[in-house]
Design a protein around this nucleic acid. Structure first.
Length: 465
DNA sequence: ATAGGGTTAG
């Protein structure tokens, strides 16, 4: 029933050069296909997977028509933008849809809500929510689930919970979204409580639910909960796909069971960059730098391109092994071959590596040359290096002050600062140190004398109130 | 007539 012209158009659409698309555009107008609502729908649908920009170009030219393009066409583009790097565009189109006199339908809402979540615009999301309520779509399960996700994506977990509580028919996606929401806002215990409730109403978790639950155990550093989830995976016979397998190996690694993590890693049928990276970083964190480096090489041999995170792992391995030259080479490789812009963590690894090797001046140069402010981890690492390599005075007094400025509530920072204090600011003076700490609500650990603090300071010397 | 939701990292 569709004309041959339609076929031609769709074929033409596959070629993405500007000339072809302009030809296509004039052809649509010439053949009056811009009056055919079904054609527009199909056309926009096919076109979206080719190029969102050109689809938008065509769509914008159809927008002033009377009647306007069908809601289906709007929905298609709104969905495409919700997955794109410009999710705000779906919000704009959502309001345009209403401005040309159309009404959003039950398909429109999930897409636009996803964009609100991704843009973290809870105000707009809330307005969409009230519209959903007014139009009577609040009982739609898909819409309910995306509302939940929109609120948790905006970091408003209370409202996400409210949506969840008010839902009349929850399914496994609702439960998984609630669990994931709690994990994302660093409330892993609440995630586990939701899981308890889920079991009590006999809703079965699937692999997506279990990924979030493993993440909750990882955040809690609780191997027991993690292992109980592992046994559930085995008992229920859920396939260990990449996402679930990676979450599992990460749980074992972060909870200190590197061997178990390695077993899971080896058992995976499919591995992605994340699986490799998490395994490499895990080995590095457990002091197995050689294994981390050989796995990194193996990963490259398997044709995987390391990303920013992979380099953090390998650089930390080099730093623990004291492989200064190798670490420098990896850093260069990251920048020059892979074109990755170093982050604070990468510079931190370099400072740590050079500092441990006693190359204080060179570590200092890294801090001074990098394009961002040092963070507290890097400063501690640097000041520790000064202390460990016989520098009584911190190489740069400002860095010592900066640490106390960024993190005034961590007792260990004062202890560290006291070790390398300059003569001008007497942190070695017990009274000054005590006053400074008192002012910050910190107290000396019981059983640890001030003399001890001054002569042999350690992280354990102080407790936070 | 064509379409929708949930998962992992320093």
């Amino acid at each position: 029933m569709l004309s041959r012209q339609f076929q031609t158009l769709l074929q033409l659409q596959k070629s993405t050069t500007t000339t072809h698309l302009l030809q296509l555009h004039s052809l649509i107008i010439k053949t009056a296909l811009d009056r055919d609502q079904y054609f527009i729908s199909k056309f926009i649908q096919t076109s979206c997977s080719v190029s969102i920009d050109f689809t938008r170009f065509i769509f914008d030219s159809l927008l002033p028509l009377d009647p306007p393009p069908p809601v289906f066409a709007f929905n298609t583009i709104i969905r495409e933008y919700s997955k794109s790097s410009a999710p705000i565009e779906s919000v704009k189109l959502f309001s345009q849809l209403q401005m040309v006199g159309l009404k959003p339908d039950k398909f429109t809402f999930p897409f636009v809500l996803k964009s609100c979540g991704r843009c973290s615009i809870v105000g707009v999301g809330g307005a969409v929510h009230s519209l959903i309520y007014k139009m009577g779509f609040d009982s739609d399960r898909y819409i309910g689930n995306t509302l939940l996700r929109m609120y948790s994506g905006c970091g408003v977990i209370g409202l996400a919970k409210q949506v969840f509580d008010e839902m009349c028919d929850r399914d496994v996606v609702s439960w998984s979204s609630m669990i994931a929401g709690y994990v994302a806002c660093s409330c892993p215990l609440d995630a586990l409580i939701v899981f308890q409730n889920m079991k009590s109403v006999d809703e079965n978790p699937n692999s997506v639910t279990l990924v979030s639950l493993l993440s909750a155990s990882t955040h809690l550093l609780n191997i027991h909960i993690g292992m109980s989830i592992h046994s559930q995976i085995i008992v229920t016979g859920i396939r260990l796909g990449v996402a679930l397998g990676t979450a599992l190996l990460e749980m074992y690694s972060k909870c200190g069971h590197i061997e178990a993590a390695f077993q899971v890693f080896n058992s995976l049928e499919e591995k992605n960059l994340q699986s490799w990276t998490i395994m490499i970083s895990g080995l590095a964190d457990h002091g197995r730098g050689e294994d981390a480096i050989s796995l990194f090489t193996k990963m490259e041999e398997n044709g995987l391109k390391p990303d920013s995170m992979s380099f953090s792992g390998i650089l930390s391995a080099c730093s623990h092994l004291g492989l200064v030259e190798k670490g420098k080479r990896y850093f260069d490789q990251m920048v020059k071959i892979y074109g990755i812009k170093p982050t604070t963590e990468h510079y931190g690894c370099m400072v740590d590596m050079l500092g441990r090797a006693g190359m204080i001046e060179e570590a200092y140069k890294v801090i001074k040359k990098m394009p961002m402010e040092p963070n507290s981890v890097m400063l501690r690492s640097f000041i520790c290096a000064c202390k460990n390599h016989g520098e009584v005075v911190c190489l740069d007094e400002n860095l010592r002050k900066l640490l106390l400025q960024i993190e005034p509530d961590i007792g260990a920072n004062y202890v560290l600062a006291a070790c390398v204090s300059s003569a001008s600011e007497k942190w070695n003076d017990v009274a000054t140190l005590r006053d400074a700490m008192k002012g910050r609500g910190l107290k000396k650990a019981p059983g640890c004398s001030w003399v001890e603090v001054n002569s042999k300071p350690s992280v354990r010397s102080f407790n936070q109130l």
